[in-house]
Simulated assay, not measured.
Amino acid sequence: MKTCPFCHNYPVQKYGIQNQIQRYKCLQCHKVFTFKKRLNPEQIWQDYPEGKQSQQQLAEKYHCSPRIICRYLEKVPKALLNSSTKSSLNLIIDTTFFHRDFGVLVMIDFPSGKAYLSSKSENRKR
């Protein structure tokens, strides 16, 4: 049985559907919420360079806004950005610009497919 994520009361009542997602209302605290799965930042990070998808395409795939995808890309887990112990790398380097003043630089080791560097590029106006 589903319980309220705020007051942990049960049962909760179905309260309509919004954007193809079932909404619920707590009968005790009267808050409205969904049991939508949380986004996995590691999966978004892997999908971004591998599929060469834009933030808009990822937003459509994960049913959220492009701004949310941008936030997840900005807070990429540093554990995914392994520094290499190899003496040489075969890198694929790509920068995707959004608007005229913001872009994301990604460096990927071609044989392993692991990301080694991610940074934001900003066009500073003087």
Rank of each mutant, 00 (worst) to 15 (best):
F33H: 07
P49A: 04
A115M: 13
K52L: 09
L117I: 00
E74R: 12
Q55H: 02
Y62C: 03
V106S: 04
F35C: 10
Y10E: 15
I92V: 10
E74A: 09
K75E: 13
S112P: 01
S87A: 09
S88Y: 10
Y24K: 04
K52H: 13
S84P: 02
P66Q: 09
K114I: 05
G113V: 00
I93E: 15
Y116V: 06
T85P: 00
G51P: 00
Y72I: 06
K86I: 00
H30L: 14
L91G: 01
Y116M: 10
R38L: 12
T95Y: 01
A79T: 11
C29L: 09
Q57L: 05
S84A: 11
F97N: 08
L73A: 07
K36Y: 06
L89C: 06
T95V: 07
Y116Q: 08
D109G: 02
L80T: 01
I17Q: 12
P41Q: 08
I68Q: 13
K125I: 11
Q55W: 02
C7G: 05
Q18D: 11
Y116W: 05
Y48G: 01
G113S: 01
R67N: 14
K120W: 10
Q57A: 14
Q22D: 13
K37V: 07
K37E: 12
C4T: 02
H30E: 15
Q18M: 11
A79R: 10
I17D: 08
K75T: 14
D109C: 05
I93Y: 01
A59H: 09
P49H: 13
C70G: 11
S88L: 05
H30W: 11
M107R: 04
M1K: 09
H99S: 13
R67W: 04
V12Q: 08
R124C: 04
N90Q: 13
K61N: 08
K78L: 14
R71A: 13
S54Q: 03
F97S: 05
F33A: 10
R71T: 07
C70I: 00
G103R: 00
N40C: 15
Q46Y: 07
G113A: 02
L81N: 03
Y24H: 12
K37H: 09
K25T: 06
I92Q: 11
N40T: 10
K37P: 05
E50T: 06
Y15V: 02
K61M: 11
I17E: 14
N82W: 03
T95G: 02
R126S: 10
Y48Q: 06
P49Y: 15
P77C: 04
